[in-house]
Design a protein around this nucleic acid. Sequence first.
DNA 1: GTTTTCGGTTGCAATTTGCAACCTTATGGT
DNA 2: ACCATAAGGTTGCAAATTGCAACCGAAAAC
Lengths: 156, 156
Amino acid sequence: MKYKRFDDMNCSLAQTLDVIGERWTLLILRDAFLGVKRFGHFQRNLGIAKNILSARLNRLVAEGILEKRESAEGAHAEYLPTATGWDLQPVLLAMVHWGDKHRPDPRGDRLVFVERKSGRPIRPMSAVSEDGRPLSPAEIRTERGPALDDPARQRQ
Amino acid sequence: MKYKRFDDMNCSLAQTLDVIGERWTLLILRDAFLGVKRFGHFQRNLGIAKNILSARLNRLVAEGILEKRESAEGAHAEYLPTATGWDLQPVLLAMVHWGDKHRPDPRGDRLVFVERKSGRPIRPMSAVSEDGRPLSPAEIRTERGPALDDPARQRQ
DNA sequence: GTTTTCGGTTGCAATTTGCAACCTTATGGT
DNA sequence: ACCATAAGGTTGCAAATTGCAACCGAAAAC
């Protein structure tokens, strides 16, 4: 009896959760986005056990989210986000924004994301219409896509 | 020895993960967004064990993400997303988009999100500049916010 | 009046997590 | 050369979580 896998659910959310839903994975990815590259730095930053960190890094490499390579000096390995990994940035931004809003620190935001060129803060994450207007949850409708039209798999 | 909590990390991502990072939680929330309200419907939709579902629903209610109330007929309880819960929609949308892109179904997207008014698909989730331009990960810089200026807590 | 459904709770086994100890390969100091 | 230390892990074991199945009380169906 293994833990139930999510990736056979024919649901994009379940696919994603299957890859990044394990404990610690997103915190590791956050540090990678902030420039942390080495095993020991992840470990001390996060206070994670080494065997767990090892397992998570290997999984992230296997899933194509981090790339493992020898450092310039050749002494140690480095873990760097791939393009696929960077595509998860919106997930992290959305979670950080929720945490800032609903579980705030009294002293203010903990991390601020700014546009590199202008130095000005980005907008809070939100759905955006085709022509660029922010959309509230109530303005969005969910439809079944082509991959769900198999009646044998209908939900509800 | 309990599992290590994330919420003492002074990090908004950790705060959010502490609330919605447990197994099954986001899948339950997805179903709630799609209109599932009742215990048994969540259970059959997801194939989740009833004790786990019970624990997750109670936690989501305690955290203010779902609201539990008696149904109109009074017979059974209903779980409905609160405003705080709906604020997590961008997290789910971002994860669904990543799954669609990187773990696709050969037949196409599984769920499509459209603007209710126009019926047209929304943009993929992405960071957006102050004046509404989509920003790639490379165009974003992360700065320490006011809540991190305590030197005793510096990272790296 | 008996059965079925709903919404759970309880008990137990399998799996995952966390901690500490250990290991191997550099590197540093003397 | 010799010993100590650090980096980057792996291994073993105890504790926590998850999953499954059985059970339970109340209400609805038959």
